[in-house]
Amino acid sequence: MLYQNTLQLAEHSQGAYEITELIEKIIKTSKIHTGTCHLFIHNSSSAILISDTADDSTKDMTADFMAQLAPSSIDSNENINSAMDAVPPAMKHARSQNELTIPITNGKPGIGVWQGIFLWEYKSAPIERKLTVTIMGEARHRSFRLSH
């Protein structure tokens, strides 16, 4: 079974925006119970990333680190917006993830309790982003657990 949906994400200025709930809804619409969900962002100045949802500062610190890793003339890493500004585009592209695949278990994203799916917007000016979600799998339950 295959389901695909291409959508426009609302305009966002620079920063990280959680889209886990949106992905949950799309998976629910697909009616696929067990499978994989592939997310693809159609541009090279934003990214799809998994990040920690327990503490907001985690994603901010990650952005700050990226800024430090590839410093530019803009010396500011006080918050995620200024930090993302400071990362040269080449570095953003080099370590960005345009695509991400997550498992679908019991009709929901099979991600960890502290994991969230985020859109990382790099552009300062708010811009609409096209996202294609491709879900493959089957409607019936085939999941079981093994320990190692």
Partner: peptide
């Protein structure tokens, strides 16, 4: 055909 399972590692 879809097969899914969880693995746990220490």
């Amino acid at each position: 055909m879809v097969h899914q399972q969880q693995l746990r590692f220490s």
